[in-house]
Design a protein around this nucleic acid. Structure first.
Lengths: 333, 333
DNA sequence: TGTTGAAATGTAACCGGTTACACCGCACCT
DNA sequence: AGGTGCGGTGTAACCGGTTACATTTCAACA
């Protein structure tokens, strides 16, 4: 029974019809006469009938819930992403069940167990690297899933995202094109994220355009970026530009510069990654890469629903991202 | 059946026991011999048996999912709150289903319909004001719920949160105590949020300590705060301090000051509300009110689960918040 | 040895939908 | 008149657990 105890059988009794007919009306089935349909709808409204989702899920084997596991939700591009997924799923009658992994494979596995144990129809994961146990479980249970926030042409598993390595490479070219030869790359913990590793590798691949190219690993928050850049500002290599693998780190870089009395971009250039909402408002406005978090969320939701409803196969999908040139990178040429 | 087609009856057949016994073992029931328990557990593992959540929900009338509707998830205290809820629910074996209302009552109602239609056992709402249709629905369906991020001693419905009016009042006293007499309060859209209205009312209640007290309504994001403060800096009343109803708006205020060449706190003081992660890293560090987002999330989760499992009644719970004094408010005395 | 009762297990009804299939009535055709 | 087809509806078997109640087992005790 639902909370007020009205079941489909009550509606059937009330209208003198069978539960089959009620079910057909409620689900918009085609083979019902207009007269009957109206009568049923009226009775449903009058009795305040609401189908029991568990019963429905049991007999259809579909919960209409999609699960997503993300590393973090706080001040970052993931919040936008997850909000877009939630909206897009909602428009199609699906709900989002969410869990946060704190970028930890063990937590991710536990979260996946929990979410699948709740009956999620599909799973959205962040990044490409996941525990083998998790992957095995997905295969064994034949759960549809996608990897997001990354893209790998050669991946046998569906990835929907952007090419982190390429974007980092493009960012480095942008700095090089502006005459920067001594650059520091500030990124989050390598151990935690394949996306971070991809960005680092991408940046590294164009090292020949630089005199000095240093990589710094910092905790992935504003304080981490700030501390890291504060220290790097003392570095004898005297970097002219900082490429931050996240706008969050870039914000920390701004604060480090403010504290050290360095002006951006006159003394130091800073470039970000993400294009968070405040990036264009900060002073000076931050040059960054506009990651398509919203578009990615929508695409992921569309594709998952298309798979669930029509069996459209999940595939690799590459999303593009643009460098947004604003005022934080000086032209030294 | 679950995805690989193993049901409780398969395990029963495999072990030569009845489904009742399997069920008892799986649910940690007490009346099973150790020998049997071990045998069942072994069979479950071998067959990779996973209970079907829909079947379980159908017969227990419990989905073990809690729904939350929040106005926004992007760069704000809500992300912390929701993350804490998710974690705390997870520890107790519950999942979080989330929807975003964009601070719109109609969207909120639609979201509630959807989430309840998914079978959520309880509903977490933000703020005190909600559409009557929503409230009626909750009562009719006897859905347990709490209002959060606000507290009202006189509320007949359970509220778990802080006293927004009182906190705003305390913030204003803080400014007055530091010798500020010309203060501007920057807040989000009044129409959207009872919390905003409460904060405004609280600030207003101590207007007699000020020469000039102005209220500005801005879009609730960094750009909004920046534009609003940029304009206010031109105001002939020459405010010495800006109280921002969110750190997000305060960040905008910082940027406005940076652009206008005003130094904080030498030329202008800024005070926030929330204590977001970067608040202590910004230069100068932001004086703000440390809202207990994490503690609130945990308490909400605890209380809801306690109600669901033990029937412990949901009540009003007041959480306290402290002013964190940092460097952004000048002492003019 | 028979009695008693607690512990362990089984039986089967039930939760509330969905849906394959059977059936009915009626219009239309030959 | 009898046959055909189809739209509309009902019957009842599922989906996969939970659990009240019945039943069996067996140790302890008079």
């Amino acid at each position: 029974m639902n909370k007020i105890g009205v079941s489909i059988r009550d509606v059937a009794r009330e209208t003198g019809l069978s539960t089959a007919t009620i079910s057909r009306v409620v689900n918009g089935g085609r083979k019902v006469s207009e007269k009957t349909r109206a009568r049923v709808l009226e009775a449903c409204a009058r009795l305040d009938y609401l189908p029991n989702p568990a019963a429905r899920a049991l007999s259809t084997r579909r919960s209409k819930a999609v699960a997503a596991i993300i590393p973090t939700i706080e001040h970052s591009v993931f919040a936008k992403f997850i909000a877009a997924i939630e909206r897009a799923l909602g428009e199609r009658g699906y709900s989002l069940i969410m869990a946060i992994s704190n970028a930890d494979e063990t937590e991710e596995l536990a979260a996946a167990r929990k979410l699948l144990g709740m009956g999620a129809d599909a799973l959205i994961l962040s990044g490409l690297d996941h525990s083998d146990l998790l992957l095995d479980m997905l295969e064994r249970r034949a759960v549809p899933y996608v990897f997001t926030s990354a893209w790998d042409a050669r991946s046998a598993r569906p990835t929907i995202g952007y090419d982190n390595a390429l974007l980092a490479e493009r960012a480095m070219h942008h700095l090089a094109d502006h005459g920067h030869r001594r650059v520091a790359v500030v990124h989050g913990p390598l151990a935690e994220s394949d996306r971070t590793r991809a960005r680092r590798a991408g940046a590294m691949s164009v090292s020949d355009r630089f005199e000095h190219l240093a990589f710094f690993e910092a905790p992935l928050d504003v304080a981490g970026g700030k501390a890291c850049v504060s220290a790097a500002l003392e570095d004898p290599r005297d970097f002219t530009a900082y490429l931050c693998s996240t706008d969050v780190l870039a914000l920390g870089a701004y604060f480090a510069c403010a504290e050290a009395g360095k002006r951006i971009p006159q003394d130091v250039s800073v470039m970000g990654f993400d294009n968070l909402d405040w990036s264009r408002d900060i002073v000076p406005p931050l040059t960054t890469i506009d990651l398509p978090a919203v578009g990615m969320g929508e695409m992921v939701a569309h594709r998952i629903v298309a798979y669930l409803e029509d069996g459209a196969p999940l595939q690799n999908e590459l999303l593009t991202a643009q460098i947004i040139e604003r005022g934080s990178v000086a032209d030294l040429t």
